[in-house]
């Protein structure tokens, strides 16, 4: 067993992590900039998107937080709404419970930075042999957060002056999630749980609309998985 804290271990993990984060570099720079430009348009200094992107570190909540800052002060409503918007992260924590085991101090930062994209990569990436798992996940988390904060800060600084037509660039996130979903699909022997996810999301999107379908979707997924446990439990094992 090699030493986990040598310089070489860290650099090797960084080299392995960077390629996985490149689609997110494109997506986060763009989405982060969109967020910075958005705050800029409402008259906030670039310091706001810079700090908010770093400490809140949750895209949709940060956009909503802008309208919170422009509304009368309502701390309880803010806190409850923020909890609801971010509720899906509970799922990521449950899925990562064992993977973050025994990682010492790194664990706390990995939990803090557990956003959609970071979770997707750290959960699905095939970490090469000989690469330290903890450092790999730490680099993925850290790089992604840097991309996001950099994008938000740049957007806040430069507002609407972009040199090329970026229309449609946000599709990079969709494409990335499609790839991750496909990888997970090919990796699994059963597709019942994927089917439950698609159906729940589509049904709730139709019923509740695009702005409030995530919470009902999560409840429906959770309910279906719990009720179907007798049938599903054997099938999902070892996937």
């Amino acid at each position: 067993m090699h030493n986990k804290n040598t310089y070489d271990t860290r650099i090797a993990a960084l080299k392995a992590a960077v390629p996985y984060t490149l689609p997110i570099l494109a997506g986060f720079l763009f989405l982060g900039m969109a967020y910075g430009v958005y705050m800029n348009a409402y008259g906030f200094s670039f310091v706001y998107p810079m700090i908010m992107s770093a400490v809140i570190f949750g895209g949709s909540l940060e956009f909503v937080a802008v309208s919170m800052l422009l509304s009368p002060f309502a701390p309880i409503a803010v806190f409850l709404l923020a909890l609801m918007i971010q509720a899906r992260h509970l799922f990521y924590g449950i899925a990562m419970l064992y993977r973050f085991k025994g990682l010492g101090w790194k664990r706390w930062y990995l939990i803090y930075g557990l956003c959609d994209e970071t979770f997707s990569i750290n959960y699905t990436a095939k970490i090469p042999q000989g690469i330290d798992r903890g450092w790999f996940m730490l680099w993925v988390t850290f790089l992604n957060q840097c991309y996001w904060v950099a994008g938000a800060t740049l957007g806040g600084l430069f507002g609407g002056f972009l040199p090329f037509d970026t229309k449609g660039l946000d599709f990079v996130m969709t494409a990335m999630f499609v790839v991750i979903f496909l990888e997970q699909w090919m990796h699994e022997k059963q597709h019942y749980t994927a089917g439950i996810g698609i159906l729940s999301a589509i049904i709730c999107l139709r019923v509740f609309g695009p702005d409030s379908f995530m919470l009902p979707t999560m409840i429906l997924i959770l309910g279906s998985l719990v009720l179907g446990r007798g049938f599903l439990e054997k099938k999902v094992q070892g996937t």
Partner: peptide, 21 residues
Amino acid sequence: YLGNALPSAIFAMLVVYCLKN
């Protein structure tokens, strides 16, 4: 069990989330 069963459902949900509009 949920830790094993949830990820596929979540990734499916995230794809739909990207296409929500």
